[in-house]
């Protein structure tokens, strides 16, 4: 099981004004807001914490299939690595920040995850789903050394992507924002 989230930094700056009144307070607790205000790059910190919460939410909903919207209840901690807590659920995250995107992966303790970022700039909306499917199967086949023809891509009723290998199934995670797509497998 794995959760991921990618933020296209340039698009996030255009799409969301985190400085509008009450915005931060809806998503971030006081400790998180302190991290944002203490940061040299507050905008990057906003989207880093956001992507950690989103990735953790996606992992949580694989563990407990459900759907809801409560980003504030997922609390980030940046001491001793990255962790996110939701009620009694705790996971690790790993966040990579480049000048173009922020990518978070959420995983259960001591599990390894692999991510791939894909550029969707020149792919039409209609073909994006197919591109994710193709790239996910390719990544899974390469990482697990399985033949691609033995793999099948599907989604759960909650929209979580899955890969079947013979009778076994593996949850994966996909994320899309602006120019970027990301696939994570565990």
């Amino acid at each position: 099981m794995v959760g991921n989230d990618i933020v296209d930094i340039e698009l996030a700056k255009r799409q969301s004004d985190w400085q509008r009144p009450r915005y931060l307070d809806k998503i971030f607790n006081l400790q998180e807001q302190q991290l944002i205000y203490a940061s040299n790059e507050p905008t990057i910190m906003v989207w880093k914490l956001w992507s950690m919460k989103e990735a953790a939410y996606k992992l949580y909903t694989q563990v407990c299939p459900s759907r809801f919207y409560n980003p504030k209840a997922f609390t980030c901690n940046l001491k001793n690595g990255e962790t996110v807590r939701y009620k009694s659920f705790l996971c690790e995250t790993n966040t990579k920040t480049t000048i173009h995107y922020i990518l978070s992966e959420a995983r259960l303790k001591n599990k390894l995850t692999t991510s791939k970022v894909i550029n969707l700039e020149n792919i039409s909306h209609m073909n994006q789903g197919k591109t994710f499917e193709k790239e996910a199967l390719k990544l899974f086949a390469t990482e697990r050394k399985y033949l691609e023809k033995n793999l099948k891509y599907a989604k759960t009723p909650f929209g979580v992507p899955l890969i079947y290998y013979k009778s076994k199934k593996y949850n994966i995670s996909i994320s899309h924002h602006g120019k970027f797509g990301a696939i994570a497998i565990a």
């Binding site: 996030a12 009144p21 809806k26 919207y69």
Partner: peptide
């Protein structure tokens, strides 16, 4: 975009002059 759901919630609060709690947002 899920980050824009917050904007919708804030806009609803302003339009109807109400405040929504996290449980309402869920």
């Amino acid at each position: 975009n899920s980050a824009n759901l917050v904007d919708i919630i804030l806009d609803i609060e302003d339009e109807f002059n109400i405040r929504l709690e996290n449980e309402d947002m869920e």
